[in-house]
Design a protein around this nucleic acid. Sequence first.
DNA 1: TACACGTGGGC
DNA 2: TGCCCAAGTGT
Length: 411
Amino acid sequence: MVTPAASHSRPDPWPDAADLLVWYDRHRRALPWRALPGTVPDPYRVWLSEIMLQQTTVAAVKPYFARFLERFPDVSALAAAPEETVMSAWAGLGYYSRARNLHACAKAVAASGAFPDTVEGLRKLPGIGAYTAGAIAAIAFDRPAAAVDGNVERVVSRLFAVEQPLPAARPALRGLAESLVPQERPGDFAQAVMDLGATLCTPKRPACALCPWMLPCQARREGTQETFPRKLKREAGALRRGAAFVVQRAGDGAVLLRTRPPTGLLGAMAEPPTSEWRPDYDVAQALLDAPLDARWKRLPGLVRHVFTHFPLELTVFSARVAADTPAPDGMRFTTPAGMADEPLPGAMKKVLAHALEQKLAPPPAPAQPPEPDLATPPPAEPPPRRAPVPKVLSRRPIAAAPPRKGGPRKG
DNA sequence: TACACGTGGGC
DNA sequence: TGCCCAAGTGT
């Protein structure tokens, strides 16, 4: 694969790894998974953090990383844990195939005794792709490997003013990134390029004046740094609609849940039963999809959620059933106390919170007829949308809502 | 190559 | 509000 000569410039002077390392020694970020200067990194922590950080912000990862270390102090502990425990601990972080692969990878590593210390060996493990293999090889084992993530693609595309748009430019950017890797301190170099991208060479308003690579940067020279990397924009997916059914059992207040299929969207995660989600879903027919016979009440408002590739709107139906009602096949009743152990994704927590909110905060409006008919839209649709997860949940936790705030923002 | 695959924060 | 973005991988 040859790169067309005109697709990028050759910087002059050439970007010197030593200049970046000098900057890194002074400005490196202190991160929980990062070994202190002069100490030996723990491959388990490096690997765990790299998996969590895939497409995920540092701020979001921090509390999860801490909790995982507590619950699973090393690979063997993680390997020995039940799958559902791992999924529950991951709930809320997104991209759940990462959690399944994490668990599979832990088993493989525990069985073989240690993490592979080469790119080729790492690359064979589940959940470890080109980026992560390079990152672990470099950071944990100080191998001269490139770790090309979104930060590095941005930095390199600017350095060389790469005109080709992503994702087609990926191979070229990788080649250029590899050409910069030094034999000395390759692990620090990998982290340094990422820190540069995260703190100075940012997508918007890069702080070029502070950059150790300002001189060799071609985009900077031309004043076009903010226009890199070039990328094709993809169109948003079509809106999908569906119905969700929240059944609460009298007496203990247990909620009816099921587990989604092991792969695919929200794979292996828990949810209240729902209809299919389709662009042409007809809510008027929703009760045909209900999991059991009950006096269903259609709740006002909608639960909206945006996935990477499509937006979703769920109409929520709720019902209360007798304490001795059996769960339909493949489903279960989970008590409020048991909710913390359910791997509920964010979208489904919204659904449950929406249903619970209705119960705790009945509309102050004039009394409505007690039994609204089932399939027609409820009278008067007040503004309640975005079901927030706040107070209601703190009183009666629907699930272990991980601390989402906290540490200093990046940058 | 092109999609599928979550979630939350910033502007 | 809406869009972009974040330490990508698997198929």
